[in-house]
Simulated assay, not measured.
Amino acid sequence: MEEVEKGRLKPRIFINQQSRSRQWIPPEAGTIRVDVDASVLENGQAACGGMIMDDQGRWITGFKKCLGVLPVVATELVAIHIGLEACKSFQLPNVQLCSGSMEAINMISRDSGANHPLYNEIERVKHLLHDGQNVQVNYSIREAIQCADILAKAGHPVGPQTVLVTGIDPTCRRRFMEDFQGLRRTKDPPN
């Protein structure tokens, strides 16, 4: 999932055409999937959330956080950053990160220049992408990352500290179970 450029490992960032599915699609074996999303209310109050699941669709952790007033793309970048930080803290080496923000993905896949207004956040994400994890970043339609969307909306009242959700969050339990049941139906039956 990485390439070597100028003697450094460079993560591959690309759009996975399969991510157009409305259903959650598991990553390849041995890889965990991180879904992240942002929520910005009409008054500009921003929050983000996400979930980390293994290649069998099992919940590892989730997160939610209130961020104060931020533009949408900045909130998406923070969500990506928190998701990658969580993977790093759990020592998860193979990561497929899915975001519904093509704009944020484009920002971290290109050289935005030091004058970009979100330069610091972009660089924080890029640093994590080059920090020893094998990361693949994909665009995903919102319907396929609905649990992350629900967690992002649930982040508004939680305050400025990142809240890690160790069990399936009650706010997204129904959607998580729908995705998990759909995943089980699409797997080949055991021999």
Rank of each mutant, 00 (worst) to 15 (best):
E143V: 03
D149H: 13
K153C: 08
L151T: 03
H127V: 13
G113W: 03
V135F: 00
D149I: 06
M177I: 13
G167S: 15
R185L: 00
A144P: 02
R184Y: 01
D179I: 00
V158F: 06
I145P: 02
Y119S: 05
L118D: 04
N120C: 10
I122V: 15
G182I: 00
T166E: 12
C172A: 12
H127N: 13
E121D: 08
V135D: 01
V165D: 09
D149E: 10
V163Y: 02
D179T: 02
Q136L: 07
D169M: 05
L128M: 10
F180T: 02
T186A: 02
P160R: 11
D149F: 02
N120G: 08
P170H: 06
K126I: 09
V158M: 11
G159N: 05
G155M: 04
E123G: 01
Q161N: 14
T162I: 15
V163E: 10
Q181E: 04
P170F: 06
H130R: 14
R174M: 05
C172T: 04
Q133H: 11
N120L: 12
T171R: 13
V135K: 00
S112N: 13
V125L: 09
I168C: 11
G159H: 03
I141R: 15
T166D: 11
D131H: 09
L151S: 05
D149N: 14
S112A: 15
H127E: 13
G113E: 07
I150K: 11
C147F: 07
A152K: 05
R185A: 00
H130Q: 13
T171S: 14
K126G: 05
G132P: 07
A144Y: 01
I150A: 09
G159S: 06
R184E: 08
S140H: 08
G167A: 12
T171E: 15
T186R: 04
C172P: 04
T166N: 11
I141M: 14
R124G: 02
N134W: 06
E121M: 14
K153Y: 08
T171H: 14
Q133K: 11
R185K: 10
T162H: 04
D149V: 09
